[in-house]
Design a protein around this nucleic acid. Structure first.
Lengths: 340, 340
DNA sequence: GTGAAAGCGCTAACAT
DNA sequence: ATGTTAGCGCTTTCAC
């Protein structure tokens, strides 16, 4: 009940044991008699003890290494933003004894798995992973689990894993938001298309989710809006949309290549475009009105949170949430500045 | 150049002085010979020393008190959300030796100034203020400054003060965002109205800003949209809008009483409503479609940031930004969940 | 002016 | 099984 900040020393005195014993009880390190355990636990409950995390981490200063497995970001603005967030957290936690090791992979499954294996060999204290390739990597995750190395996932969810935290968005809801916004922008009578640009669409469950959410919204509203979904392996292939355009009122792009589609639209086109991510080209087009709305996936926050959670877990043994879903920020030209 | 984490001890050895001397130099505490100062500073520059904040704060454990001056939140959902954020930060920093003292004021200028005076008498280590009354309080701020008590402002900006941080939003931009969204929702030919509900409208510069931003947007677009601004002291007075309604296509409410206006609209009204804040009644109406869009002022984040900044300043002597503008989140029924 | 040393609260190695 | 103690890095007091 009392509001004071009790210390290990106080507890030891109250329970009539030594500080060492209190510590052993708190951390279940064993080698304590039952009576001692009981006495200490009683005191603990009564005073509602909360350890001083600062003191704890001061002691624990053992230079933890967190491995970052992330797609090559030199040419990719989305992942670069994610790295900015990671770097911010890196700077913040460096002085607390956390250092990061980056494992960038070229976007092929082989490269990804190779880097992942490297990480396992290097035995870091924790791992943050952008797992854009699903298949095959399961056994790698299992190896982390066997070695009791905590890991978190960013951006792409994978089920049935013992990860600490998944950080990303609710992609189905994300599609629904896009649908609701599209509804306000386009004529009910005309067609809207959902466009995916992704090499490995089969394994990209989050893109399926976005499409599903989008359709689900119109379905639940009993809307007669005509919706068509198109999948492209490569942004170049978007040119094949050309003859279709006159029939289209709106386009929902499920990836950050939203600007690519805007490039194929006629100058004075009235086609509404909703897409993802505040990469520079998208922001430019949003300002010009070539893109109407962007949904912000906040990669920077994802990166920052990922590193922060793992770091605090290592430093203070803090619990972390199983899932951290970031908000689905709706960005138009007038509020884009405050998200940059 | 080296990347190691140097300690005071290392520096002392490198400079051939004692640890105490190094500390005196770092903190400009005087009583050090010029030669010693020079030696230590040379080493400091060479190694790019960064102090271990954990160790520093462990020592400094002196139970700082942060005063919170906030409107009575028992009946006000907006301020209650702000307090939730404050409480979250309180919980987080309590174990680091920060405790909060709340000074709730009834919404009159006298009560506000009384509480403010109480705070000054109590001499806290820092103050977080929601200054909804402008006039008269300037001298109180000056007293804080004289006593060198750091303070931050939340939600309502006041110029010419030596506050640490203002935390809130860019209200002009906020109005512009509302305008852009309104434009997509309503017919160009019909009228839109800006509605303020505020007793002390004269002194509420942030509401003026919202209105200005709203009008500015249409002006810059050379829009012919007819815009009218109305001010009410009390939500009840909104009933006088009744006969006007048939001419109105959209309403922009500048305060969180957005739900009040929705109550006066006919059941099947086609009037679009844009307003502020995710208080329960607003959220309910957003879900029902009675309100179309809410701009989220994120009071919870405001409260959390306010306490965090001041706490970290007290604990680690961290620098804090002069202004922290929160994003202008656009909330519709489909993404409201992720902001709650 | 300078250095030596105690101590913040917790942990872990080392005695007993 | 339990108690004692040396530190983590920084600050501050107290001798010299």
């Amino acid at each position: 009940m009392a509001k004071e900040n009790y210390t290990i020393r106080d507890i030891a005195e109250l329970a009539n044991v030594s500080r060492g014993t209190v510590d052993r009880v708190i951390h279940n390190r064993g080698k304590v008699s039952e009576t001692a355990v009981k006495k200490v636990k009683e005191v603990l409950e009564k005073i509602n003890y909360e350890p001083n995390l600062i003191a704890r981490s001061l002691k624990a200063h053992k230079n933890n290494v967190v491995a970052i497995i992330i797609p090559d970001y030199s040419e990719d603005n989305y992942w670069r933003q994610c790295v900015y967030g990671i770097r911010r957290a890196e700077k913040e936690f460096r002085q607390f004894g956390i250092s990061l090791q980056y494992y960038e992979y070229q976007k092929t499954r082989e490269a990804y798995e190779q880097k992942f294996s490297d990480v396992i060999v290097d035995e870091p204290d924790a791992v943050l992973i952008v797992p854009i390739y699903y298949s095959g990597s399961l056994s790698l995750f299992r190896q982390l689990e066997e070695r009791e190395i905590p890991y978190s996932l960013i951006n792409t969810p994978i089920e049935d894993l013992n990860y600490q935290t998944f950080i990303g968005q609710d992609y189905r809801k994300s599609g629904r938001v896009a649908a609701q916004l599209m509804e306000t922008l386009v004529d009910k009578e005309k067609k809207v298309v959902v466009v995916h640009v992704e090499q490995d669409f089969e394994n990209s469950t989050h893109l399926h989710e976005k499409e599903e959410g989008f359709k689900e919204y119109f379905r639940q509203k009993n809307s007669t809006q005509q919706i068509e979904a198109l999948t492209f392996k490569n942004a170049k292939d978007l040119s094949s949309l050309h003859q279709e355009l006159p029939n289209i009122a709106g386009i929902f792009m499920t990836t950050s290549q939203t600007y690519e589609i805007a490039d194929y639209l006629p100058q004075d086109s009235d086609i509404k475009v909703i897409g993802y991510d505040l990469i520079p080209k998208n922001v430019e087009y949003l300002r010009l009105g070539k893109i109407n709305i962007l949904i912000h996936q906040n990669p920077k926050q994802q990166g920052y949170d990922g590193v922060s959670y793992l770091s605090e877990h290592l430093l203070y043994k803090k619990e972390m949430p199983k899932v951290k879903l970031l908000p689905l920020d709706v960005v138009v030209s007038e509020n884009v500045d405050c998200y940059l």
